[in-house]
Every structure is written in structure tokens, then in C-alpha cells.
């Protein structure tokens, strides 16, 4: 299956470990990712200032995918949310599409509708499927206990997310984790937000939200947490040491992008999956799986 790869802003700069692991595991599972030439910001950061400008920014990226005849695969859940919402809004509203396309005319672009936006975890869960992943596993991660953090924009709002997963009782990423041989462990508040949305607005509140999550996961006794969004990682991993200081306790909780965990199960080496770039070193986990 061929998909356009939409990197967005954060992934290529702050989450190269995520990007490199996606690029490794995708071809192994029959996913052909094509870089989307000329793609820019998804529009999400502008939404709070002007919803209209944000919509036009999102549409421009959809138009680039449409021109290449590709559906669009995102790695960042916020990019996904912004692009999915735009796609859904434009699909049913010809007038809005015409008004939006007017801003794209100078670049010779136009969005006729029809592009599907999918998150890489949705691609793995629904288009590849857990069964095929299990078949491809060369190094089962048996004995590993994993806490899944779904994150908000991977699930909500349900109306604009084409995968149609119940945001109050999701299972796709748990299934993906268990397909590697690891166990997905429940913990209180597992569907709660990472706090990232307001890091730039009110840091203290944002980090307090993250801390609730880290405290809950710490109580569940896991080897690592798994995320599918660069900003969730910034909060849960990148800010973990700062939160430890404020909380007066140690978490030392490795946070892996799901494709990194999957890559270990598929037999890739830790370095091939960018695990040396993870801030909280997953040395013990890597040693245990023998990567």
C-alpha cells in the first residue's frame, strides 16, 4: 500500500527517533511511504488565532496529497487531528471548498476532496492488522509490560476520525503492543491528556497534568510507556526529569514510540530504531529483548 508521508513540524526536528523507526518498519509490513514534497505546517498551531487560516493551511497539504493521488499518513496526532478535521469539513461542503481553494490558486493548487488522512498507528492496526504483524515478529517481546498512552488527538473528536474507534474504550494500540508479544498493562487515567496543549500557555498546569499520568504509570509497574505522538513524548519523556525534580520522586520511565517497540520485535537493532535518541535510556529493556 502506498501512502503520502506527512511529517509536520515536530517529528523531523524533535522526534527523529520516531521518524527513523517508522521508515524502518513500514516497508517490512508492505507500507510504501512517499515523502510529500512541499508540505508545510498542518495549521494546528494557528487554529487558536484563526480557524480560517488554519483550515487553509491544512487544505494546502491535502491538495498536495490529492495531486499525487495519495492518502496521507501522519505520525503526529495533532497534525492528524487538524488534517482529518479539515478533510471532513471540506468533504460535505462544496462552497467551503471553493472559498478555501481560492487561497491556494496562486500556487496552482486545488483540493477536490477525497483524501483520507490516517495515523501510522491506524495504518498498522487497521490496514496491516495485528495478525500480519504477529507473523512478521522475529523477536517476540515476551515478558515486557507496556503502558499505552493513546493521547487525545489519536482518538478525538470521534466524528472526524475515520477509523471509527470508540474514544472511551479504544483497543487498537493495545492490540498492536500485544502483537509484538509484550503485554499492555492497564493504569488509571490511561485515556487522559499529556498536558502538551498548554505547555506554552501555562507551564505549571501543563506539567501538573503530565505528572498525574507519570504517577499512575509508575504505580502500574511497567518496563516502558508507548506513545504515538511527538508532543506526548515531549511531555512524558522530554519533561520527565523536570517533573521528577518538582515531584521529589524518580520515574526513570522509558517512553518509546510504538514503531520503535515494533521494530525491536521485527528484529531491528536499537540504533536502527533511533533508541539512542530517547532521553530516558531504555538500556534494560533493550538488553532484555537482546537487541
Amino acid at each position: 500500500m502506498r501512502l503520502g508521508l506527512f511529517l509536520g513540524c515536530s517529528v523531523p526536528v524533535r522526534a527523529q527517533n520516531y521518524e527513523v523507526s517508522v521508515r524502518r518498519v513500514a516497508p517490512r509490513l508492505g507500507i510504501e511511504l512517499e515523502d510529500l514534497e512541499g508540505a508545510a505546517c498542518c495549521g494546528y498551531p494557528v487554529q487558536s488565532v484563526s480557524r480560517e487560516t488554519a483550515l487553509v493551511m491544512a487544505t494546502r497539504n491535502l491538495a498536495l496529497a490529492s495531486r499525487r493521488g495519495l492518502d496521507l499518513c501522519v505520525l503526529c496526532s495533532a497534525c492528524g487531528g487538524s488534517l482529518m478535521e479539515a478533510a471532513a469539513e471540506l468533504e460535505g461542503d462544496e462552497d467551503l471548498r471553493a472559498r478555501t481553494n481560492r487561497h491556494l490558486e496562486p500556487e496552482g493548487l486545488s483540493y477536490p476532496g477525497g483524501v483520507k488522512v490516517v495515523h501510522i498507528a491506524e495504518v498498522l492496526a487497521h490496514r496491516v492488522g495485528a495478525a500480519r504483524i504477529r507473523d512478521a515478529v522475529e523477536r517476540p517481546l515476551e515478558g515486557l509490560r507496556i503502558a499505552v498512552h493513546y493521547g487525545c488527538h489519536y482518538l478525538r473528536p470521534r466524528e472526524t476520525h475515520p477509523a471509527g474507534e470508540d474514544p472511551e474504550a479504544p483497543g487498537s494500540i493495545d492490540e498492536l503492543v500485544e502483537a509484538t508479544g509484550a503485554r499492555s498493562v492497564d493504569y488509571p487515567g490511561r485515556l487522559a491528556c499529556c498536558g502538551g496543549g498548554i505547555l506554552g500557555i501555562h507551564e505549571e498546569t501543563a506539567l501538573a497534568i503530565t505528572r498525574v499520568k507519570l504517577d499512575a504509570v509508575a504505580g502500574a509497574g511497567v518496563d516502558a510507556m508507548v506513545v504515538v505522538c511527538p508532543f506526548c513524548s515531549v511531555m512524558l519523556e522530554g519533561n520527565q526529569k523536570r517533573i521528577e525534580k518538582a515531584a521529589g520522586r524518580e520515574y526513570k520511565l522509558p517512553v518509546l514510540y510504538y514503531p520503535q517497540l515494533l521494530g525491536l520485535a521485527l528484529g531491528f537493532g536499537a540504533k536502527e530504531l533511533g533508541l539512542q535518541l530517547n532521553r530516558i535510556k531504555a538500556k534494560e529493556l533493550i538488553a532484555r529483548v537482546g537487541a
Binding site: C152, H153, R156, P157, R158, P167, E168, A192, C193, G195, G196, G197, I198, I201, H202, T205, A206, I209
Partner: peptide
């Protein structure tokens, strides 16, 4: 201060 998590809307 809204974090945009959509829990309320859901």
C-alpha cells in the same frame, strides 16, 4: 488555558 483534548466535547 484549554488543552484541546476534546474530552468535554466527547
Amino acid at each position: 488555558l484549554c488543552a484541546g483534548c476534546y474530552a468535554c466535547r466527547e
